[in-house]
Amino acid sequence: MLSAAAADVGYKEGRNNDTKHGRWYGLNFNPWCDMAVSYWAQQSGNAGAVGHFAYCPSHVNWFRARGQWHGRNAAVKRGDIVFYSWDGGPLADHVGVVTADSGPGQNIATIEGNTSSGNSGSQGNGDGCYRRVRSRASVLGFGRPTYSGGSTGGGSGLSRAQTTIGGLVYGYGAKGEHVTRVGRALVAKGFGKHYSEGPGPSWTDSDTANYRDFQVSLGYRGSDADGVPGPASLARLLGATPGKPALAPFPGAAWFRGEPRSPLITAMGRRLVAEGCGRYADGPGPKWTDADKRSYAAWQRKRGFGGSDADGWPGKATWDALKVPAV
C-alpha cells in the first residue's frame, strides 16, 4: 500500500481535477483524495482491506461498521488511513495514508492526494500528491485496515482484492452476469480446474484461482499473478484482437437505475450516436442522464422493440447488439 502511494508522490493533476485516479474510478474532474487512496489499495492488492470509495464520509462509516475506527489522538500505525475535518465538524473532508508509527497525540507522517505541498495552498483540494507531516488539530480519526487478513483469503494465499474495469467490479465478492462470462471464458480456455460447480454470477476463490492460472499462462509472475483481473489480461481472456476489441459485458439492469458515472456510459453513448440514435444536446458523457435514456430508447425502437420494451432502460439483448467496447 505504501509503495503504491509513494510511487505517486509528486504527481500533479491536470485542469479541473483531471487525474488518472479519477479516470480509473470513473469520477474524473472531481476532488480525488479518496479515489487516490482507493487506487493505491487496488494497485497493491489491498482493495478488500482498504475499501473502494470516492466520498470520505462513506469511507469513515465503512471503517466504523467494521470496528476498525480509532479516534483522533490514538496511537497510529503505518498503513492507517487518516481522515481530516478542516472545520472540526463530524464529516471527513480529506484523507491520506499514514507512513510511520506515532504515539498518542503526536504528529503524523502521511502521503495524500489532492493536497498542496505546503500550508499556503488548499489542503483538501490542492494540485497533487505529496508527503506531509501534520498535527492532530484537524484529524477526525483513523481507519485501520486488516491488511494481513483483509486482502488475502486466510491461509489460501488467494487475493480478496477487487478492481473496477469499465464500470464493472471484478474479484472476490463481485456479482453479476459479467462474472459468469469470465468464468465461462476461463473454462473455454482450459482454466476451470478449481471449479467444483459453476461458474456462476458470484466471484469466489475458485474464480480467483482459475484466473491466476490464466495469468501465469500469459507470463505474469509474483504479485502480477494474483488472480484479480487487469484490463490487459481481461481483454486477452474475452477475445480481444488488434482488429476486434473486446466488448463490454452487460452490467445488469439494476446498475443503470442507480444512475452510474463511468467511462462505460460514455462508450455506450458513442455507440448510440454511431447508430444514429443519439439524442444528446451535449455529450455523451460518463454520467447516466435522461439523454442517455432517450438515446437508448431510440436504439430499442431501431431494434424493433416498442411500448414498455422501448423504455430506455438497457437490457441484455439490445446491449449485446449495440457492441459497446470494453473500456
Rank of each mutant, 00 (worst) to 15 (best):
G128R: 06
R72S: 11
T163R: 04
S217V: 03
G22H: 04
G113F: 03
R212F: 00
T318W: 08
R236I: 07
A274L: 03
V228N: 07
W32F: 03
S196I: 00
G285P: 12
Q42M: 12
T204G: 13
I81D: 03
P242R: 15
G190Q: 01
I108F: 06
A75G: 07
N73K: 15
G22V: 07
F250Q: 11
V273H: 04
S58M: 13
G269S: 03
S151F: 00
A235E: 10
H178T: 07
G51A: 09
G276A: 15
F83T: 08
G121E: 12
V139D: 07
E259P: 04
E197T: 14
G276H: 13
G192L: 03
D101K: 03
G230D: 13
A317H: 13
A6P: 04
V187N: 13
A317W: 08
D18G: 10
Y220W: 11
F305H: 12
Y172I: 08
G67R: 14
A253H: 05
W32A: 02
P90F: 00
S295A: 10
S122R: 09
F256V: 06
T115K: 11
S58C: 10
F256I: 09
G167I: 01
F142D: 04
G103Y: 08
V50N: 07
A317D: 14
S38C: 02
Q215I: 03
V50G: 06
V95S: 11
P31V: 09
F214V: 08
R131W: 13
P251M: 05
R136F: 00
L264D: 06
A109V: 06
A298Y: 02
R301C: 01
T289L: 09
A137T: 10
S148G: 09
T99N: 08
D207M: 14
A267T: 08
A254T: 10
H21T: 05
A298K: 02
G88Q: 15
H52I: 06
T204R: 15
G227C: 05
G312P: 01
Y39S: 06
R301G: 02
A65D: 14
G304D: 01
D290I: 15
P90Q: 04
C277L: 09
G141R: 06
G167W: 06
A185Q: 02
G176Q: 07
P31R: 06
Y280T: 15
G88F: 11
M35L: 09
V179G: 00
V97N: 01
S3A: 12
L237P: 04
T266A: 08
G278N: 11
G22F: 00
G166S: 00
R184G: 12
P242S: 15
G22T: 11
